[in-house]
Amino acid sequence: MHIAEGYLPPLHAVAWTVAAAPFVVHGARAVVRQLRTDPESKLLLGAAGAFSFVLSALKIPSVTGSCSHPTGTGLGAVLFRPPVMALLGTIVLFFQATLLAHGGLTTLGANAFSMAVAGPWVAYGVYRLARRLGGGLALGVFLAAALGDLATYCVTSVQLALAFPDAASGVLGAVVKFGSIFAITQIPLAISEGLLTVLIVRLLTRVSPAELTRLGLLRPAPGKEIAA
């Protein structure tokens, strides 16, 4: 769930847009570079974007009695590194803001910062850390997708808290307030997103192991044929 149109004061809206813009521009260049240096990954790149498209359309009921949706950005962040998702995630947000009245153009910068920048970077960091600590591919992908999803909504809560501090308890109190709306709702959804991302990676491992090896997710197995 994104910050609705007009629900950030102009100053905040501009500031978050300025903060997100360099990431998105850098992301666009990263996508171009990816396609130029590795044209064969075009389809998989599209699939990563498509995954985010599907997941962010699915509004899922949660334990708080309200609905939210996953982000689907963890998969692309793990496969292609986070900058690529800065562009793809922003495209998803733009689609939802213009056609679905979900999110908004004035809040596009803030929403892009949370979903297309912060979420993917957290996902990528968690993935690298989990693998370095000896975690397997599935565990790394699960934690990356789940925590990246959760981080997105924590950032959303902070963004709203900065714009609307609580009269009594200030910004921190507002973080708790918005966190209880967004982050708690998101916990089961984050788990779902983790599981679905693991599912997709398992399917990818089966049908395109060569591609995952090239992207560094799988180690080249000496005994197994990779691309006969």
Binding site: M1, S62, V63, G65, L189, S192, L195
Partner: peptide, 18 residues
Amino acid sequence: IAAVPLVFIGGEFGGADG
């Protein structure tokens, strides 16, 4: 995970953004 709240927790299930 999606079905349990629907069945066991009452609620409007409005959007969190709303």
